[in-house]
């Protein structure tokens, strides 16, 4: 099979996946916006602005996949055909994860818009913040694909493919956790409009931790990329990034639960928002540490593998 056939097949699959994710979430967002306008026709203009912003973010995700397909198409060689194929599909998977989570957050934002029209500004700001974080996850996968494309050769295809797939898995994990947390924050915004500021700060801090998990995978890929020069290091690198991805996924899902619970606690007990936030942060630090242990062990071991 010619390398271009492999790549093209993967590329169309990737584009389809990404487009599906964006379209599905945009559809849900649009429907939620319609419902919101039906229930509170007087705030239609505000709902429309919020909806447009959300749709733009989801649209951009597919554009990023398109961009990476475009870039890689000019660089496909027989040596790295497999890598390019895995890379575009990984990119699409990350975009899909981001899109679905953004959809979840946007739908909740639409509900919040009609339940508490007075606070639609707060709702929109919090939603934007959440979407930005989820957007960034796909961008990190984009960056890693880009960087690896410059350095992967025939001897490092295994590592490179594992690395982009690992990044995608970690990004999906982070996206799921961030999506749920943002959704809970949206609900907290209309259930307790007075504590909207507190909710947003706590949400942002939680999202930062979930974002960091994907970035730890990013970092380990970078470190290993500089060291994966031998077949043994290539194999080790592939295993290591896979391990990191699994660890990050686990941490992310736990952090997601903590984030959701913290948001609920904040609207039920707004006066304890500060305490809840500090406790949440300490808990998130512990879950993050679990992934960091894997990071540390890989970092140490990679120096020994030759």
């Amino acid at each position: 099979m010619s390398p271009m056939v492999i790549f093209s097949g993967a590329a169309v699959l990737a584009m389809a996946l990404a487009a599906f994710g964006s379209a599905y979430s945009q559809g849900r967002t649009g429907a939620a916006a319609m419902e919101s306008i039906r229930k509170k026709p007087e705030s239609a203009a505000k709902v429309r602005t919020t909806m447009m912003l959300a749709l733009v973010f989801m649209e951009a995700l597919t554009l990023f996949v398109f961009a990476i397909v475009f870039v890689l198409a000019g660089r496909v060689t027989p040596d790295i055909a497999v890598f390019t194929a895995v890379a575009v599909v990984s990119m699409a998977a990350a975009a899909l994860g981001s899109a679905l989570s953004q959809g979840r957050a946007a739908v909740a934002a639409m509900e919040s818009s009609w339940r508490e029209p007075e606070e639609s500004g707060d709702t929109r700001t919090s939603m934007m913040l959440g979407l930005v974080f989820m957007e960034a996850l796909t961008l990190f996968v984009f960056a890693i694909v880009f960087v690896l494309t410059g350095s992967v050769d025939s001897s490092r295809v295994l590592f490179g493919s594992a690395a982009v797939a690992a990044m995608a898995l970690a990004a999906i994990g982070s996206a799921v956790a961030q999506g749920r947390t943002t959704q809970a924050a949206m609900q907290a915004t209309w259930k307790q409009p007075a504590a909207a500021g507190h909710t947003r700060t706590s949400m942002m801090l939680a999202l930062v931790f979930m974002e960091a998990l994907t970035l730890f995978v990013f970092a380990i890929v970078f470190v290993l990329n500089g060291r994966a020069t031998t077949p043994a290091a290539n194999l080790f690198g592939a295993a290591a990034v896979a391990a990191m991805a699994v660890a990050a996924l686990g941490s992310a899902l736990s952090q997601g639960r903590t984030g959701v619970a913290a948001m609920e606690a904040t609207w039920r007990q707004p006066e304890a928002a500060g305490d809840i936030r500090t406790s949440m942060m300490l808990a998130l630090v512990f879950m993050e540490a679990l992934t960091l242990f894997v990071f540390a062990i890989i970092f140490v071991l990679s120096g020994m593998v030759t």
Partner: peptide
């Protein structure tokens, strides 16, 4: 990571 993203998107 952020810097790399900026660089990668800028070049793509």
């Amino acid at each position: 990571g952020g810097e790399t993203v900026v660089l990668a998107v800028l070049m793509a």
